[in-house]
Amino acid sequence: MDFVGAYEWPNIRFILQGLLVTLEVALYSIVLSFVLGCILATIRYSKMPGLSHAVGLWVETIRNLPLLLIIFFTHFALPEVGFKMNVFVSAVVALTVFESAMIAEIVRGGLLSIDKGQTEAGRASGLTYLQTLWHIVLPQALRKMVPPTVSQFIALLKDTSLAVIIALPEVVHNMNIVKSQNVNYTMPAFLLVAVLYFLVNFSLSRLAKRLELKTH
């Protein structure tokens, strides 16, 4: 093992550049999947005729597919029908589609945990169904959803490593390039990436605990 050679600044910088790409992909995917997941959950919870069943089928289908298959489909299959994207966009789209289905179930579970009397009280006060959902039900549900949602986002961050299969220059991809320079760089490179993942995910978990305490 050659820690000195592996941890030379050019190698460290290259791996950190990969970490930045990982965080960028994760950030875009987190925001988009949360918004889309909330929309899907609201439609399914509202039990709109036809539409709710279609959304439910979509969510259950995506949740039971491997993420790697969705990444392959987004990057290699969609261009065949005219939707050509670079690796960054392909990774974000694939992660958003997959994680939004997971988030949708978390949000729906949160909505179902709120007593139906809350909805009835909102409607009785003159609010429309959507206003009741937005102003009364959803804010209460979001408080209960903080721990599972953050856990899902941590999983999303780790799942970005699967995009190495389409040559996204994220942290694992760059680590592989560094360790390919010298067989003695393998263990130091793996350890560095493991520490980086730990620091980011541990920070997210601590943030989740703080948010959970504030909501109680």
Score class of each variant (00 low, 15 high):
2 D>V: 04
7 Y>W: 14
7 Y>P: 09
8 E>A: 14
9 W>V: 13
15 I>R: 04
16 L>T: 12
23 L>W: 13
23 L>E: 10
24 E>R: 09
28 Y>C: 06
28 Y>R: 02
30 I>V: 14
32 L>V: 00
32 L>T: 00
34 F>R: 09
34 F>C: 14
36 L>K: 03
37 G>D: 04
41 A>N: 05
43 I>Q: 09
46 S>D: 12
50 G>M: 05
51 L>P: 10
52 S>M: 01
56 G>R: 00
57 L>K: 13
62 I>W: 06
62 I>Q: 00
66 P>E: 06
73 F>E: 03
77 A>E: 10
78 L>I: 03
79 P>T: 08
79 P>D: 06
81 V>C: 01
81 V>A: 04
81 V>D: 02
86 N>F: 07
89 V>K: 11
91 A>D: 05
91 A>F: 04
93 V>I: 09
95 L>E: 08
97 V>E: 07
99 E>G: 11
101 A>H: 01
106 I>T: 05
109 G>V: 08
115 D>P: 04
121 A>E: 07
122 G>E: 01
123 R>G: 14
128 T>H: 04
131 Q>M: 05
135 H>M: 09
137 V>W: 02
138 L>P: 00
145 M>G: 03
148 P>W: 03
153 F>I: 09
154 I>C: 02
162 L>F: 13
166 I>W: 10
169 P>Y: 06
169 P>Q: 01
170 E>W: 09
170 E>F: 04
172 V>W: 07
175 M>V: 11
176 N>F: 05
179 K>S: 07
183 V>Q: 15
183 V>R: 15
188 P>V: 04
192 L>K: 08
196 L>V: 10
201 N>D: 08
211 L>C: 10
213 L>C: 12
